[in-house]
């Protein structure tokens, strides 16, 4: 016997609507908003915290809005809010969508750093790449992700350290560079497995803390990767 789904479709299937896939007879409120259905979405009973600027859902412990980049502590927006870094759509190989910030990240393999790590905790399975080229990644938006690309997980970091020489010590979502209102940058570690070290400090930065970077400052991630920030232009 056909049943009616929350979006008003007649469905032969009684578990999920055989037109729009909505749950049928589920106890939970189900604000389905398939474009296929001109429906009246119910608002979830418990309002999730949202960004006061753009309304995007936010995590209670987040320092910045993931969509518009608003700094929740200061209430300031990044200088040039990018069109919204879309982690699902912005492929590593895709052309940069944002504007040229006038900064580049220089990515290189640092043998001295690798050696000091090996001295601290030797791991024979990791070998230093002998043929690593130095890469320059222009910082084309106000948020630059550092990590390892994963198609299956939908992770496409701008600074993709899965590219040869793939650094095995870098987490998929490792850290981010975020542009500040004054045009300078901070680095925030996402809670990576092996941490992020700024300016060759003795210990890694605390996950979630925004640490200032100035022109010429460098940071280390993974087994050997060194990332140096350089101001190259005079972008606004």
């Amino acid at each position: 016997m056909p049943v009616t789904c929350p979006n008003g479709h007649q469905s032969e299937s009684t578990d999920y609507c055989d037109t729009c896939g909505a749950v049928i007879g589920g106890a939970a409120p189900d604000p389905t908003t398939g474009p296929a259905a001109g429906d009246t979405a119910k608002v979830p009973a418990v309002a999730a915290p949202t960004c006061p600027n753009c309304g995007a859902p936010r995590e209670p412990d987040e320092a910045f809005c993931e969509v518009c980049g608003l700094d929740f502590a200061t209430g300031q927006l990044p200088v040039a809010p990018a069109g919204g870094p879309d982690p699902a759509a912005a492929g590593a190989a895709a052309p940069p969508t944002g504007e040229d910030t006038g900064w580049v990240a220089v990515v290189s393999a640092d043998h001295a750093y690798f050696e000091s790590n090996q001295a601290e905790s030797p791991d024979a399975s990791v070998t230093f790449p002998t043929d690593a080229a130095v890469r320059e990644v222009p910082l084309m938006s106000s948020e630059i992700q550092i990590g390892r690309r994963s198609d299956s997980k939908g992770i496409f970091p701008e600074i993709d350290l899965s590219e040869p020489p793939s650094d095995p010590g870098v987490s998929r979502r490792h850290a981010a560079l975020r542009r500040q209102p004054d045009g300078e940058w901070v680095v925030v570690d996402h809670g990576s497995t092996n941490g992020t070290v700024v300016r060759s400090a003795v210990s890694a930065i605390k996950p979630g803390d925004a640490v200032r970077l100035h022109d010429g400052d460098h940071l280390h991630v993974g087994a050997w990767t060194r990332i140096t920030l350089r101001k190259v232009g005079t972008a606004t």
Binding site: G169, N194, G222
Partner: peptide, 14 residues
């Protein structure tokens, strides 16, 4: 599986 989190590489104490 070494996919994620990343394989523990020699690294500073996080």
């Amino acid at each position: 599986a070494p996919a994620d989190p990343a394989t523990p590489a020699p690294g500073p104490e996080a």
